[in-house]
Design a protein around this nucleic acid. Structure first.
Lengths: 241, 241
DNA sequence: ATACACCATGACAAAACGTGAGAGTCAAGA
DNA sequence: TCTTGACTCTCACGTTTTGTCATGGTGTAT
């Protein structure tokens, strides 16, 4: 568990930035100390690394969050795009170096604005972003959340937590019990109503995220009582089997 | 002479950005049409190229302006730094590509934050900026303009134009005439009082800028009457001889 | 003349932090 | 135990560099 300063020193990300990422829900600390200090673990660092990768490619932070919090997030596709974009950027830098050297050593003054023109890169970047937004999942999310105030979004998120909270008193029953299965159904319905059509496939993904031992697990357990997250995961697993 | 759209299309810089650069005095249009349209010539494009080079290196726009408007602006030193910085950035990108490929193909999860850490680059960048600010010229400017409102800065700039305007009625006299030489002296004093100690050396640089046929020349001639800029340049040349 | 693409100014917005005030925390030493 | 100094927190406002209307004037081609 590292404090903000330690994370900052290790990663080069400013403390303010960590605060910022916390406040917009992009990177929540793994835990919060008695005194309210943010504490980050290895898993948070991993997420941060991923965030930085997207950020390096000029993705808006909000989109980074949406992408990474989505249960159908395809890491491989992301990396592939990222590599392509990085290679474009490298080419861009090479052009600039060539240009600068030309001006410097030969006094060339020919206008080579191609060197500065980032439109091709921006275009690819835009297309990459679009390729994420083009998934039906994203579309639906967009449609359901367009024109919603921050408080309303907050309310939806809290509503989701409440639905998950319903699992809490059922923990002593088997995951396949009718009560638990009904709760899974309600969770799926809530997701479908407020986020995107939650197919069994996506539900499965959600279950993995909740029970994976990561920040999702911890957040749920902290809010709804220890073991809730794992129980939800088990119930979902039973449901989708 | 190109309109904003044409410049935008050729360079990839947005129209809004051109407006902005005009409004902060970073890139003034070479001329303004009857109807107030901004018109840019080749020389403006050259300046724009230089601006973009600095911008690529994260210099704040205000500093870019100060640097480029200074008569002791050493373009070669600038280029040298720029090349170094670009090479650092290239190295950075290479690291990122390596990292991304590693994660992608080998599933490596080791935290290599060095790849994201831009502190070395920022550090060099900062040092580069500092190296411009460390000239006595800059120091003095900083000291004389610290705590001045925008209007006051404006007033000083207008005062300078007024001093230059004094040359206008002397244009039919020889550049070495006592009246012209006295005007040069007043110009030098004004610069020293409100900008930086204007040595004969710097004065010479100013003269070249004014008479060089560039935007300075045009601005002066537009404000004070055709031929004024060239006359000032000649008077300064006579003075520093 | 009227459509249509283009330009200007002005004002507001937004993204991603920076910065500073005011106040609480924590470990180490006098 | 008390203090000191380095950290931390939360507002809250500032900054930089554009993007985005709104409103209104230009220029030209049909």
């Amino acid at each position: 568990m590292m404090t903000v300063r330690q994370v900052s020193d290790k990663t080069g990300v400013s403390i303010r930035t960590l605060h910022h990422y916390d406040s917009i829900g992009l990177l929540r600390p793994s835990a919060v100390s008695e005194a309210g200090y943010r504490l980050y673990d290895e898993e948070a660092l991993e997420r941060l690394q991923c965030i930085l990768m997207f950020r390096e490619l000029q993705f808006p932070l909000k989109e980074i969050r949406r992408i990474m919090d989505s249960p159908d997030f395809d890491r491989n596709r992301a990396l592939e795009q990222q590599i392509t974009l990085l290679e474009l950027r490298r080419e861009h830098i090479d052009h600039l170096i060539t240009l600068a050297r030309g001006v410097w050593m030969l006094g060339v003054k020919c206008m080579d604005f191609k060197a500065f023109d980032t439109r091709k890169i921006d275009e690819y970047s835009e297309q990459a972003r679009k390729s994420w937004r083009d998934t039906p999942t994203w579309q639906e999310y967009e449609q359901k959340h367009s024109g919603l105030s921050d408080e309303q979004e907050q309310a939806i998120a809290e509503g989701l937590m409440a639905v998950i909270g319903e699992f809490s008193p059922l923990r002593d029953q088997p995951a396949a019990s009718p009560a638990a299965q009904a709760a899974v159904k309600r969770l799926q319905d809530y997701m479908t109503a407020h986020y995107y059509t939650c197919t069994d496939q996506l539900l499965k993904g959600l279950g993995k995220m909740y029970g994976g031992g990561g920040s999702f697990t911890e957040n749920i357990n902290q809010a709804c009582g220890d073991g809730t997250a794992e129980f939800v995961a088990a119930a979902i697993a039973a449901y989708t089997a």
